[in-house]
Simulated assay, not measured.
Amino acid sequence: MNETEHGTRPDSPHAYRHFETLAIHAGQPADAQTGAVVTPIYQVSTYKQDGVGGLRGGYEYSRSANPTRSALEESLAALESGRRGLAFASGLAAEDCLLRTLLKPGDHVVIPNDAYGGTFRLFAKVVERWGVRWSVADTSDPRAVREALRPETRVLWVETPSNPLLGISDIEALAGVAREAGVRLVVDNTFASPYLQQPLQLGADVVVHSTTKYMGGHSDVVGGALVTSDAGLGEELAYHQNAMGAVAGPFDAWLVMRGAKTLAVRMDRHCENATRVAEMLAGHPKVSQVYYPGLAEHPGHEVAAKQMKAFGGMVSFRVRGGEEAAVAVCDRAELFTLGESLGGVESLIEHPGRMTHASAAGSPLEVPADLVRVSVGIEAADDLLADLRQALG
């Protein structure tokens, strides 16, 4: 991907061509009233109207719109090269809004064979009760995806890199499959972030984010986002966002904007550190397999190199000795904090089978019992390597 074209589109209101500049300035001009260079937190629920139906600045009630959230939503759209961005109270709230906008009872969705446990739970335990059917496909194989599509399929759902096995799906190829079938391609871009990957430019219809992760970047906010280049779909999503109400609060929106300003520099460090961690693990005698798309032996390495700027900060690996050995590694880690979530400046370690992906147990998305997942932070790489070596024993 040409970095100088990252984050721009022909009708963009932003004159900036580089992602790093967009991240700091898009949607965030100096405050007109005070000159404040940081968007204020509009901690307000309602707004004075200039007569009945006369909205001052277009705001009436903060569930419908709030100036701080509006700034974040414009920034999100710019960073993902989209037309419309929408900010939610969590990543799952964003997913729920999207699914209820796109689907009705009797529709069908193809989901990946490796995905976030919360996403799987939403499909299997919530949306299915509403009459929406789903089936699983290996989204790294466009032929398998094509075979999984049905006449009633309306959505193809993709995570790339996937959670927790770091699988890679060819977004451009899957966009072609989706167009041929007349279905919407949704890409969860949480693991990559818009700095590393631009799904809309590769043909996706909608991008999903848990902004809790790399967008926020400091483990201090929970949020979600949707971005699309389809103006009509953007209006539909905004209608449902308001009607359903799971919106990002102004302080949470402000925190995500603050995090986004440093996304590029943080991701560079995350990627550098993760590469060193993956290479060390690949040569460790107590590790049987490493999942990281930056390794040449990863089956999705070439596709990842084609569609990503770098390979991300997430690494998963399998430990010789089975489940108890994997749990012991998590327990012995000291600098890597045992905890769920990912994408913060601090490094985290977890056992997916017992933690983030427990809801997928017994399903086609069940993860290996000996799997450990690490979110590699931006600490000194040598310290991270030393901690993992001692945790492995």
Rank of each mutant, 00 (worst) to 15 (best):
M257V: 01
A71Y: 04
L72P: 00
L156N: 04
G377M: 07
G131T: 06
G343E: 02
C97H: 08
E73D: 05
D11I: 03
L99T: 11
R154A: 05
S219I: 10
L233A: 07
A78W: 03
V132P: 12
R389K: 14
R150E: 09
V206K: 07
P112G: 04
E73T: 00
L92R: 11
S75A: 08
Q390D: 11
G234P: 00
E3I: 14
R84P: 04
L348W: 12
E297Y: 10
D11E: 14
A243S: 11
D50R: 11
A238M: 06
V177C: 01
E152A: 15
A137W: 01
G35K: 02
A358S: 12
E324K: 02
A278N: 09
L185H: 05
R121Y: 13
F120G: 03
R100L: 07
A26I: 02
H6L: 15
F191P: 07
D268K: 10
A181G: 02
P164E: 11
M244H: 15
E73W: 01
A115M: 15
R9P: 08
P40M: 00
V265Y: 08
H108A: 14
T212W: 11
R373M: 13
F191Y: 13
S363G: 00
E159H: 14
K309C: 09
S64G: 09
G57H: 01
L388P: 03
V38G: 09
A124K: 03
R184C: 13
S359W: 00
G91E: 06
V277A: 14
G203M: 08
T139A: 10
V127L: 15
G217A: 05
R354H: 12
T211K: 04
M308Q: 08
V315S: 02
E20F: 11
G283N: 10
H270R: 01
